[in-house]
């Protein structure tokens, strides 16, 4: 590992952590425009996080240390994931330490802890949220793995670096298997980030909420970290999607600092477009009943499997 490698790694991590709330603000703004509403400022998520950090957290009498530790673990896991996902450059020092499967494992770590924390207080809503989150998770996680498997069958590697480099060098080849994987990935991302049609981030309506039900008991800095981690998760998934399906503009090798600085505006541009599309999907679809969510995710899972099958059949 060279110091330039470490520097690029740090730049990527810092960009991810700092830009993540901005992406969320942008999606909210687009959504408000599309729905003929007045949009909040782009900086609104930052203001909210700052406000929450300054407030005093109140936790229940019977909260265990797991409850207090979870926001940090979830945020840490998402930051780690941001270091692994090749969003700006491919050959970062961290990339060899964890591959696509490990990335799914790190997401699972965050999910398990947040579900455990939701059950920790012992309220009706908390365990309801935990149950629903695990319900979404047990279908979304294998579907995500299927997407990675399709990509890794093409590139003969589960390392995200090799996957992205392989896909970036074959611009003019169209992979039918990747089309299936792309749709599956979009559906999984919607579910995992608690977006419409699976969950609604803007509601506290008890019958429908999933993610919000789990974090009801959090306040102050804990809530700030969880909110920040959620926006970081959205950022990670967006970067993953871009890296897998639109890998152009990502710097190859970690020794090109100028290239790295150029990659930032490219990424921002791609994210802006992606965020707009996300807002479009959210505006044009209605929230599903909770028991339609497994069908939705089951479809994503099947599409992922189909992607692998198509790859085996056509060899592409």
């Amino acid at each position: 590992m060279t110091w330039i490698g470490a520097l690029s790694q740090l730049i990527q991590l810092a960009v991810a952590v700092l830009l993540a709330p901005l992406l969320l603000g942008w999606v909210n703004q687009c959504r408000a425009w599309l729905q003929n509403k007045r949009a909040p400022s782009l900086a609104q998520p930052y203001r909210m996080i700052r406000k929450l950090f300054l407030k005093e957290p109140v936790i229940a009498h019977n909260a265990s240390p797991i409850f207090r530790l979870t926001p940090y673990i979830v945020f840490g896991a998402m930051a780690l994931a941001a270091a692994i996902v090749p969003s700006l450059a491919t050959d970062l020092p961290f990339a060899t330490a964890a591959d696509a499967i490990a990335l799914v494992g790190i997401f699972a770590l965050a999910r398990i802890f947040i579900a455990l924390a939701a059950m920790d207080i012992g309220t009706a809503f908390g365990s309801l949220g935990a149950r629903r989150e695990m319900l979404i998770g047990f279908l979304a996680e294998p579907a995500l793995l299927m997407v990675f498997f399709t990509a890794s069958l093409i590139s003969q590697s589960t390392s995200l670096v090799t996957i992205v480099e392989t896909l970036a060098h074959r611009e003019f080849v169209i992979y039918p298997s990747l089309a299936f994987a792309g749709i599956a990935f979009t559906m999984v991302s919607l579910a995992e980030n608690a977006r419409v049609p699976v969950d609604n981030p803007a509601t506290h309506l008890e019958l429908t909420m999933i993610h919000e039900a789990m974090i009801l008991e959090y306040s102050g800095r804990h809530l700030a970290l969880i909110e920040w981690a959620s926006s970081l998760k959205l950022f990670n998934y967006s970067c993953l999607g871009l890296a897998l399906f639109f890998p152009w503009g990502i710097v190859e090798g970690a020794h090109d600092v100028v290239g790295l600085l150029w990659a930032i505006p490219v990424l921002v541009g791609k994210l802006a477009l992606g965020g707009f599309l996300l807002a479009l999907i959210e505006t044009m679809s209605a929230k599903l009943r909770i028991f339609r969510a497994p069908e939705f995710l089951g479809t994503a899972f099947l599409l992922g499997v189909l992607g692998m099958l198509v790859h085996q059949l056509l060899g592409a």
Binding site: F53, E56, H61
Partner: peptide, 26 residues
């Protein structure tokens, strides 16, 4: 590193006050 760093930074930059109360549960 990320978890401990976050704990350290949050406690350093803001405060580490904490209050216990009954659960909120909407």
């Amino acid at each position: 590193v990320t978890v401990l760093g976050t704990i350290f930074l949050v406690h350093r930059l803001y405060h580490h006050r904490l209050r216990r109360g009954p659960p909120w549960d909407c």
